[in-house]
Simulated assay, not measured.
Amino acid sequence: MPERHVNWDAVPVVLEDFEVGREPARESLRDAVRALLWALAQRAPGRSVELRVPPYGAIQCVEGPRHTRGTPPNVVETDPITFVKLATGILNWADALTSGKIAMSGIRADLSSYLPCWPEKSEKTP
Rank of each mutant, 00 (worst) to 15 (best):
Q60R: 09
T98K: 15
E123R: 11
V76N: 04
P55C: 12
D17R: 14
P72D: 01
S99A: 10
S122K: 06
K101L: 15
L97M: 11
R69H: 11
C117H: 03
R69F: 01
N92V: 09
D17I: 14
P73A: 02
K85P: 07
R47Y: 05
A94T: 13
M104R: 13
F18T: 02
S28T: 01
I90Y: 10
D79Y: 09
T98Q: 13
E120N: 15
M104I: 08
Y114D: 00
E16T: 07
T68L: 15
N92Q: 00
I59G: 01
L37R: 04
A109T: 15
T125N: 10
H67A: 07
R30F: 03
V84F: 06
R43Q: 05
P65E: 11
A39C: 00
P65K: 11
G106C: 04
E120F: 10
S105C: 10
W8I: 10
L40K: 12
G46F: 01
G89C: 08
A32P: 00
W118R: 12
V75Q: 01
R22M: 03
Q42N: 09
R47F: 12
S105E: 10
T88F: 03
S48T: 01
L40D: 11
Q42K: 14
I107F: 12
C117I: 05
R43D: 11
E16F: 13
R69Q: 04
R43W: 03
E120S: 15
E120I: 10
I90M: 12
T82A: 10
K101F: 09
G89Q: 04
R52C: 02
L37I: 04
G21D: 09
R26S: 11
S105Q: 14
V84Q: 03
L97E: 09
P73F: 05
N74P: 03
